[in-house]
Amino acid sequence: MAPRVEIDGVAKSFVMHLQGGKLLPVVGNVSLEVAAGECVVLGGPSGAGKSSILKMIYGNYRVDSGHILVHAADGPVDVASASPREIIRLRKLSLGYVSQFLRAIPRVSALDLIVASAREQGLDEDKAASRARSLLQRLNVPERLWSLPPATFSGGEQQRVNIARGFVADHRVLLLDEPTASLDAVNRAAVVELIFDKKRQGVAMIGIFHDEDVRERVADRIVDVTRFAARAA
């Protein structure tokens, strides 16, 4: 099957100008392919660069060298060299990112937040709303909270709203940055179910899961990122 994400020879380091131009190597020579319907989990100790790799794929971090091809419906985009406009379009239509942190927008209700995310991709109002409701239900967010802005929710509730927001749209590629961290067993299981749904829909996923149980269940492959360790400069 044709890969959805192709990462080839990607290297990343930070230059810390405020610390006298200190060079902080992160990863070197990252090469990875992810197929449609596949969930690849990045493994390795913390600080090995797992999160940085996700951020580079999302375009949030720049890339020193190499290519990151994301195959959108209308063709591949090399995130490593794409213009801001191309990346914005890619994120809107094809590339989703789910973290455990919700960047809440004041005064927008939880439900509207999720609906807006689905609408961005062109889903009609009714379909977006029914999907949003069903996701909030599956993630056990109490219905009385749906019409409230999540800024005042507990950390766990905010996290689940954010997961719903990430899963509601039909992105072809999803990046999962510890979405299950600090969730209880019931909700962890709900997220695992959502991931399986996405797999069945042919979504390519790359994730970081600290919870070993979840990792074992969702991973088709575990890639140890220590093998991409950058050679110290």
């Binding site: 100008h17 405020l18 949030n60 971090y61 720049r62 801001p84």
Partner: peptide, 21 residues
Amino acid sequence: TGLTDQVLDDPREPYTQLLVS
């Protein structure tokens, strides 16, 4: 210059790093 979250989360220039920090 660049994507807003990229420039703010991964600033490249010394001055930008100073601004962000």
